[in-house]
């Protein structure tokens, strides 16, 4: 297999801040790489360099075998970019936005209109095609932006936090679209702040912080590294909390935490933990109002990987580092 995206030692400085401090990324053709990190980690900077919007201060990168600095125009024919903020023209209709991008990609007006209609249908925007983009909801705008990135049938697509700010239903829509792209053989680099999202979509995950890579693994491997999943139990009756705690100690990897007055949580590594806990709860006749198994949050991932609390470590460094 050949690498659709290959970056070696990317460095980018903004004034005195090092936004990227020597990053290596490789994405094989047709694969999805999730780049996971908090705000200011350097995710967007990396995407902007790979999408030719920024020049790196050091290192090299190729997309589809083309150098992003020296063959930028050729790279732009191969890529689609959807940023954190939907880059559509609010004073144009959905249709006009897509036709304009199509024309700029050297389609004839007729071809551009056909392609735009296809994408509008695919992204469920046909009814809104004639409306100004400023009347669109956040989710619609994101979909329009994504369609604009796909007009030229790019081989490589960059998605910079594609679901940030979307409600869960809209987020699922975007996930489905990303999966459809993968089916067509598109290579995708996706940045996100959610392990859950990277886990759902990516073949491999790179975790970055302060411009450096702190972990790279498959979703399975990464989850193993950060201590699997978190089990949360909220008993109906607060009085049964001590019994629940005892029970959770048996299945968890450490002492349960109490994130809310009536809620207990503990990391578990055994996949069958949930069923065992349910069985134990029922045997003891404890009723619960909430019971869940979830992936660790970004904070928990960082805690496991670096052994320090991100929020504390962050206070001094986040400022100034461009997201």
């Amino acid at each position: 297999m050949t690498a659709a995206i290959e970056a070696r030692g990317l460095v980018k400085r903004f004034g005195k801040t090092k936004a990227l401090d020597g990053i290596d990324l490789t994405v094989e053709e047709g694969r999805v790489l999730g780049v996971l990190g908090p705000n200011g980690a350097g995710k967007t900077t990396a995407v902007r360099i790979l999408a030719t919007l920024l020049k790196p201060d050091g290192g090299t990168a190729t997309v589809s075998g083309l150098d992003v600095v020296h063959q930028a125009t050729a790279v732009r024919r191969k890529i689609g970019l959807t940023g954190q903020f939907a880059s559509v023209d609010e004073d144009l209709t959905g249709m006009q936005n897509l036709v304009m991008v199509g024309q700029l990609l050297d389609l004839t007006t007729r071809q551009a209109k056909i392609r735009a209609s296809e994408l509008l249908a695919e992204f469920d925007l046909t009814d809104a095609a004639g409306r100004l983009a400023k009347t669109y909801s956040g989710g619609m705008r994101r979909r329009l932006d994504l369609s604009a990135s796909l007009i030229g049938r790019p081989a490589v697509v960059f998605l910079d936090e594609p679901t940030t700010g979307l409600d869960p239903a809209k987020r699922d829509d975007v996930w489905d679209m990303i999966r459809a792209l993968v089916k067509q053989g598109t290579t995708i680099l996706l940045t996100t702040q959610y392990l859950e999202e990277a886990d759902a979509l990516a073949n491999e995950i790179t975790v970055i912080d302060h411009g450096s890579i702190i972990a790279h693994d498959t979703p399975q491997g990464l989850k193993r590294q950060v201590g699997g999943q978190t089990l949360e139990v909220r008993p109906t009756d607060v009085a049964s909390l001590p019994r629940v705690r005892e029970l959770m100690i048996r299945f968890g990897t450490r002492e349960p935490e109490q994130p809310a007055p009536d809620l207990l949580s503990v990391p578990v590594t055994d996949e069958s933990a949930l069923t065992q806990v349910v069985a134990a709860l029922s045997a003891e006749n404890i009723s619960v109002s909430e019971l869940s198994l979830r992936l660790p949050s970004l904070d928990e991932v960082f805690y496991s990987l670096t052994g320090q609390n991100r929020t504390a470590a962050d206070a001094t460094t986040t400022k100034g580092a461009a997201a």
């Binding site: 999408a51 030719t52 919007l53 125009t73 050729a74 732009r76 024919r77 890529i79 689609g80 970019l81 940023g83 903020f85 939907a86 880059s87 559509v88 023209d89 609010e90 991008v101 700029l104 990609l105 050297d106 604009a148 990135s149």
Partner: peptide, 17 residues
């Protein structure tokens, strides 16, 4: 400010266009 320039910049057009 609105980000539409990012769209233009990711397209294979002359920077001056």
């Amino acid at each position: 400010q609105k980000g539409i320039f990012d769209r233009f910049r990711s397209l294979p057009i002359a920077r001056s266009a």
